[in-house]
Design a protein around this nucleic acid. Structure first.
Length: 823
RNA sequence: GCCGAAGUGGCGGAACGGUAGACGCGACAGUCUCAAACACUGUUGGGCGAAAGCCCGUGUGGGUUCGACUCCCUCCUUCGGCACCA
């Protein structure tokens, strides 16, 4: 059919997008007010690091979450969906050093550029609420919180071995060292240094952090946090060493398997253990010292490699197992870690793989004390299960090992030989960094009075802009006399400032609360705003933050709650992790040169097309691959919508003689509303857009046939534009106006569907024989079972398949199918 | 080694235990064009067949079921996390 309308009209996204972005800004359409009567919805996307250019990965993170926030707004919520910059940190400093510029200038330029790029996306960010963490108005509150933590005993300084990255020239938190023992930023092998460091006492909250029952988070993230915290219930048990005449007549070990206590055939100390030297006999001294020295020199990787031999040396001493009076040898071995438990392990080779390996190597006895079901009395190398029956265990013989654990623990506590203990894998959070580009730690060291907190009225402790910031291994601030030399706030005497700065994860641990009242001067958060907004309702971002950021932010939230700053227990009620967008199945990276720069594509195809493509390329949580032709397909669709909606609906008659197609359209519209709504609730953007494409395709077909009336058409156009508005906000707004509707499409209510109208009058009745499809019959949707069976059995396509067979039964699934079972 | 997720056309991916492959890309054919590109229309899992239709198909092997991409078990592969934590 030939039409008068020209086909293939393309819209000028440049004109449309800049027009509406200006208009929305002028009208303050995205301003969020606390006195808005609608119910609140706080939807947060992890803020970006201002690395310079907005990467397509940023779009992948932000465009779908913006669409979701917009959807929630159309549902009738007062939506807060803010944006800011995680502006402190090593990359800025490293980049600044490379380029010979100042980190501040470099960072602020990047932020300026990225703000412009972010604006091109047409998101609903309320820029008046922007948070920039290197701004003194922000980090002042970092320092303020540090002081509050300090007063509450949650911040403390300790001389301790720390992870040292020789390339970054700073210490790292445990969370920042990968499983391979390298720096999570630069992949350099991490070594150790003993330094005075500031810590946050996150372990105080270990048990509360384990409780994630109220969180709607992906299970794998919860599991990772649980594993990271690593709670173990066990027993501290003493072994008698009084025969050696030390100050302390016993040594302490920790075990989770006290049921195996009768199987102990040796004890092992960590090489760094302070008792190692004392327990070493003179004739063993030389060997032990050589071993300890060799262990000390090993790198973290060598030390931690699991497949390594279980090395160790005998100290010459013995200790006594108080339960059976047995004397067992004491070894030093580097498979025992000083940082876990007591740094001493009781060796039970029959029931622990590592102890087994150690015993094999050193010819130590192996004694089974927990017999697995059906045990034949043979040694059990490798049978380390913790369920069985106590044997060779004195008075505890015959007990199931689970019960044995409790009874032996009771007995030890009664005798005063040990007590139940809970151990965590997680350590306190080391926050000191020997680098320039971070928030100074607000402490001074008085020559007379020691450690003195900076008074609140002297905050912020400004980061001096004129410091030499090249890393030397010590904090660069140490070289800045004007910064360092200070009067003691307590006694007025000579004092020096703490020269370390805070880990940037401190900044991101509470930024979610600063957005609530970004200009508030009375504290980190305005209590009224905190009361109104509470926790983030929906948080989105990458799963690379599964442990560090998310755990720290949870800790901060609980600590701030206990300080009375906020009223919530958890920062993020719901969490959704998007996947990664890749190019050619490889992670994009600047060094590899395979980076997709969104600006070119926005210029070429428009922000709406790039937004929609981010959502369409695959399920958001699984990530996907960028492809130019994929973007092109989405772009074609938007042009088709433009073309379709721009058609003059006067060309359609007021009513169509055959009413069926109009009903088809109406049904499709209601089905689409349902599909898109349900999919957006579950972040299934790809299928939402697919549903919208289907509706568009149907509309196009019906138009071609001119078999739809004007009213149905206009209704379909309206619903299509409303449903598209969150994903393609500019084109939806433009077409909303062009079709004579009232500004703004983004202030309209989300459409609702009517189940009855979405339902079909007829269904395709599927007819199967033995579960295999044989026929499809169009029938009235209200068909009863009996006629459906009759129709199925009468089908000419069914008969040949049941010929000569006995019909055993007929399964009827209402509204779906008939399955004839024939044998 | 342990924990978790995932394996579906040429590709990205759809599918409340009930029509496998929606939607899109690509490819092919056509329309438009002097031509190409763009755009638009149509076809498109494999095999056999003139057609009707039949058979085979969701990593592997089994199981449950009238019926399995979907649930259960085995194994394989890929990815992510943890890893001498006593």
């Amino acid at each position: 059919m030939v039409t008068t309308q020209s086909r293939g009209t393309r819209y000028d996204h440049r004109v449309v997008e800049s027009k509406w972005q200006r208009r929305w800004a002028d009208d303050g359409l995205h301003e969020v007010r606390d006195d808005d009567p609608r119910p609140k919805w706080y939807e947060l996307t992890m803020y970006p690091y201002p690395s310079g250019d907005l990467h397509i990965g940023h779009w992948y993170t932000m465009a779908p979450s913006d669409a979701h926030a917009r959807y929630r707004r159309m549902l009738g919520y007062n939506v807060l969906h803010p944006m800011g910059f995680d502006a402190f940190g090593l990359p800025a400093e490293n980049a600044a050093i490379r380029r010979g510029v100042h980190p501040l200038g470099w960072t602020m330029n990047n932020i300026e550029n990225m703000r412009r790029q972010l604006r091109s996306m047409g998101a609903i960010y309320d820029w008046d609420r922007e948070v920039v963490t290197c701004d003194p108005d922000y980090y002042k509150w970092n320092q303020w919180l540090f002081l509050k933590f300090y007063e509450a005993g949650l911040a403390y300084r300790a001389f301790a071995p720390a992870n040292w990255c020789p390339s970054c020239n700073t210490v790292l938190a445990n969370e920042q060292v990968t499983a391979e023992g390298v720096c999570e930023r630069c992949d350099t092998t991490v070594s150790h240094r003993d330094l005075n460091q500031w810590f946050f006492r996150i372990t105080d909250y270990a048990d509360e952090l384990l409780d994630m029952s109220g969180l709607v988070w992906p299970e794998n993230i919860k599991t990772m946090q649980t594993n990271w915290i690593g709670r173990s219930e066990g027993v501290n048990i003493r072994f008698d060493v009084s025969e050696h005449g030390l100050e302390q007549p016993y040594i302490d070990t920790f075990t989770t398997r006290i049921d195996t206590i009768y199987g102990v055939t040796f004890v092992v100390l960590a090489p760094e253990h302070p008792l190692t030297a004392q327990l070493t006999t003179p004739e063993r001294r030389e060997d032990v010292e050589a071993y300890v020295e060799q262990a000390r020199r090993q790198t973290e990787i060598e030390r931690l490699s699991t497949d390594k031999d279980k090395t160790g040396v005998f100290t010459g001493s013995y200790c006594v197992n108080l339960l059976n009076g047995e004397r067992v040898p004491v070894f030093v071995g580097d498979y025992v870690l000083m940082s876990y438990g007591t740094g001493i392990v009781m060796g039970v080779p029959a029931h622990d793989q590592r102890d087994y390996a150690f015993a094999e190597k050193h010819g130590l006895p192996i004694r089974v004390v927990v017999a697995p079901p059906g045990w034949n009395g043979e040694p059990l190398p490798g049978a380390y299960g913790d369920e069985g029956v106590q044997v060779a265990s004195g008075q505890f013989d015959g007990l199931p090992s689970g019960e044995g654990r409790q009874r032996i623990a009771d007995y030890l506590e009664e005798k005063g030989w040990g007590e139940r203990r809970v151990q965590y894998r997680m350590r306190d959070w080391l926050i000191s960094r020997q680098r320039y580009w971070g928030a100074p730690i607000p402490i001074v060291y008085c020559e007379a009075g020691g450690e003195v907190p900076v008074p609140y009225d002297q905050l912020p402790v400004l980061l001096p802009e004129d410091a030499e910031f090249r890393p030397t291994g010590e904090s660069p601030l140490r070289l800045h006399r004007g910064f360092m030399d200070v009067e003691c706030p307590r006694c007025g005497g000579q004092a020096t400032r703490e020269s370390d700065t805070m880990d940037t994860f401190v900044d991101s641990s509470w930024y979610q609360f600063r957005y609530l009242s970004p200009h508030y001067e009375g504290g980190p958060v305005d209590p009224e705003a905190a009361g109104l907004w509470g926790a983030v309702d929906q948080y989105t971002g990458g799963s690379e933050h599964a442990v560090m950021h998310l755990l720290y932010a949870r800790f901060f939230t609980k600590a701030m709650r206990d300080l009375g700053e906020i009223g919530v227990d958890e920062p993020f009620a719901r969490l959704f992790n998007q996947g990664q967008i890749v190019l050619g199945s490889r992670r994009m990276s600047k060094s590899r040169g395979n980076v997709v720069a969104p600006d070119e594509y926005v210029e070429e195809s428009g922000a709406d097309a790039v937004r929609c493509y981010m959502m369409f390329l695959g399920p958001w949580d699984q990530g996907g691959e960028w492809s130019d032709s994929g973007l092109n397909g989405v772009s074609r669709w938007l042009n088709r919508v433009w073309d379709l909606v721009s058609r003059d609906s006067d060309e359609l008659s007021d009513s169509v003689a055959d009413g069926e197609p109009a009903r088809d359209l109406q049904r499709a519209v209601h089905q689409t509303i349902k599909k898109v709504t349900e999919d957006l609730d579950r972040f299934k953007f790809n299928t939402s857009i697919a549903a919208l494409m289907e509706l568009t395709n149907l509309m196009n077909q019906l138009w071609e046939r001119r078999s739809v009336d004007e009213a149905a058409w206009r209704d379909a156009v309206e619903k299509l534009l409303l449903l598209m508005a969150p994903m393609a906000p500019h084109i939806a707004e433009e077409l909303w106006e062009a079709t004579g509707r009232e500004y703004s499409v983004h202030q309209q209510a989300w459409p609702e569907w009517d189940e009855a109208l979405a339902a079909s009058e007829t269904i395709t009745l599927v007819v199967q024989v033995n579960g295999r499809l044989r026929d499809r019959i169009e029938v009235d949707a209200s068909i009863e079972e009996a006629p459906a069976r009759e129709l199925a059995l009468a089908s000419a396509r069914v008969r040949p398949h049941v010929e000569g067979k006995e019909i055993v039964k007929v399964v009827y699934v209402p509204g779906r199918l008939v399955n004839v079972v024939a044998r």
